[in-house]
Amino acid sequence: MELIELDRVTRSFTVRTKAGRWRRERRQVRAVDDLSFTVRAGECVGYLGPNGAGKSTTIKMLTGILVPSSGRLRVAGVDPARERVALARRIGVVFGHRTTLWWDLPLRDSFELVRRLYRIPPARYAANLARCVELLSLGDLLDTPVRQLSLGQRMRGDLAAALLHDPRVLYLDEPTIGLDVVSKNRVREFLREVNAAGTTVLLTTHDLTDIEQLCDRVMVIDHGRVVYDGDLPGLHLAGRSERTLVVDLVEEQPPIDLPGVRVVRTEGSRQYLAFPAEQSAAPLVAAVAERFPLRDLSVREPAIEDVIARMYARVPIG
Rank of each mutant, 00 (worst) to 15 (best):
R84K: 13
R243P: 05
L101F: 09
L284R: 07
L48T: 07
A160S: 06
P167G: 04
G157N: 08
R186Q: 14
D33K: 08
T209R: 11
D7I: 00
L191F: 04
S150P: 00
Y118N: 12
V32Q: 03
A123G: 07
Y47M: 02
A160Q: 07
E290H: 05
A31H: 11
R89Y: 08
K184F: 03
V67M: 06
S150H: 08
V85W: 14
A313Y: 14
D109R: 14
E278L: 06
I65C: 06
Y228G: 01
S280K: 02
P255C: 13
N185S: 10
Y312C: 01
S241K: 07
Y125W: 14
V146Y: 08
R8V: 01
E174A: 02
D158G: 01
G96Y: 08
V85I: 15
V218S: 05
T204Y: 06
V75H: 04
D7F: 01
L73W: 11
F292H: 12
L141E: 06
A19F: 02
T38E: 06
S12L: 03
A31C: 10
N185C: 06
E193L: 01
D257I: 14
T57M: 04
V146K: 07
T38F: 00
V194N: 00
I65R: 10
V146M: 05
G64K: 05
L249V: 07
L172A: 08
H223P: 04
D210E: 12
R26P: 03
P167T: 03
V146I: 07
G42R: 03
V114T: 13
L237Y: 13
L164Y: 05
L245Q: 09
G318Q: 12
A81N: 05
G152P: 12
